[in-house]
């Protein structure tokens, strides 16, 4: 399958501070990949490198086969970019900004933009700077839909949005990208939104990738187990068990192991437990399970 984005041995440092080293990932055509990570793990850094706003300390990123630091106008036409905070030219109004961008994109779909703007019920001559964060997010999304890009890069799209606008944003985007077979690279702080949108997740920890796999596969194989035991201390040394903790007398661990294999493993390590319960996880819980609460 054709890869729309390909990052090879991507390494970046801010001064002496390492963000990550030798990061490798690909996004095949038609997939929606969510980049998940705690603050400071390098999500926006990656987006900046992809769009040529940051030269990596090492490695490279290719978009449509071109080096991301030197994209041709033809490739930029294929990339819709949503900047963190839904930043747009806020000195323009809805009509002016549509008129401005339409000059740059030959496949411009005016009706897609105004279709979304009709939902806002605001004066078309109102400046973007006087709109709420939610309204601005819809303007930014509408412009991307009208651009009709092959690849959408959305940096923290849920930032500053209330639940209603977040849902509107995800629903509209979801329908669009699935109908039109678009490729999406998205980051967000709010992982519930991502769960409804993404096919694959790439989870970043400080300095490295924890995993990249389809969300369905992750949620079907990654589990949380709760049980009673004397202490969770012996669990800390077992590599297959992630982030064991005891809360109010109940111990919990996260793992990819099935229930019977976990029981076997604990027996082999002479750890006796009672009342073993297996929990299915949401993406947010799986994220916490993989990265830890702190």
């Amino acid at each position: 399958m054709e890869n729309i984005i390909e990052c090879k041995n991507l390494t970046h440092y801010y001064g002496d501070r390492r963000i990550y080293e030798n990061l490798n990932f690909k996004i095949p055509k038609g997939r929606i990949l969510g980049l998940l990570g705690k603050n400071g793990t390098g999500k926006t850094t990656t987006i900046n490198i992809l769009n040529g706003f940051l030269k990596p300390s090492g490695g490279k990123c290719l978009m449509f086969g071109e080096d991301s630091g030197n994209l041709s106008p033809e490739t930029k036409q294929k990339v819709g970019l949503l900047i963190e905070g839904h930043v747009q030219y806020s000195f323009m109004n809805i009509i002016e900004i549509e008129k401005f961008y339409s000059a740059f994109y030959p496949k411009w779909k005016k009706e897609a933009y105004y279709g979304l703007m009709d939902l806002l019920k605001i004066d078309p001559k109102q400046k973007i700077s006087t709109m709420s964060c939610g309204q601005r997010s819809q303007v930014a999304l509408g412009l991307i839909l009208a651009q009709d890009p092959e690849l959408l890069i959305l940096d923290d799209f849920s930032m500053g949005l209330d639940p209603g606008y977040r849902m509107l944003f995800v629903d509209y985007l979801n329908e669009y990208v699935r109908t039109e077979n678009k490729t999406v690279f998205v980051t967000s702080h709010i992982i519930q939104d991502m769960e409804r949108l993404i096919d694959d997740c790439l989870i970043l920890d400080y300095g490295h990738i924890i995993l990249q796999k389809p969300v369905d596969e992750l949620l079907n194989t990654f589990r949380r187990y709760r049980f009673k035991c004397d202490s969770h201390e012996p669990l800390l040394s077992i590599t297959d068990l992630l982030h064991p903790a005891t809360i109010k007398g109940e111990t919990e661990v996260y793992t990819f192991l099935e229930k019977n294999k976990l029981e076997l493993l604990l027996k082999e390590n002479n750890i006796s437990i009672e009342n073993l319960i297996e929990d299915k996880l949401s993406l947010e819980e799986a994220f916490i399970g993989l990265t830890g609460k702190y």
Binding site: N51, F53, K76, L81, V87, Y89, F104
Partner: peptide, 8 residues
């Protein structure tokens, strides 16, 4: 960033 992202 918006200006630099324009297809020019």
């Amino acid at each position: 960033k918006l200006t630099l992202h324009l297809p020019l």
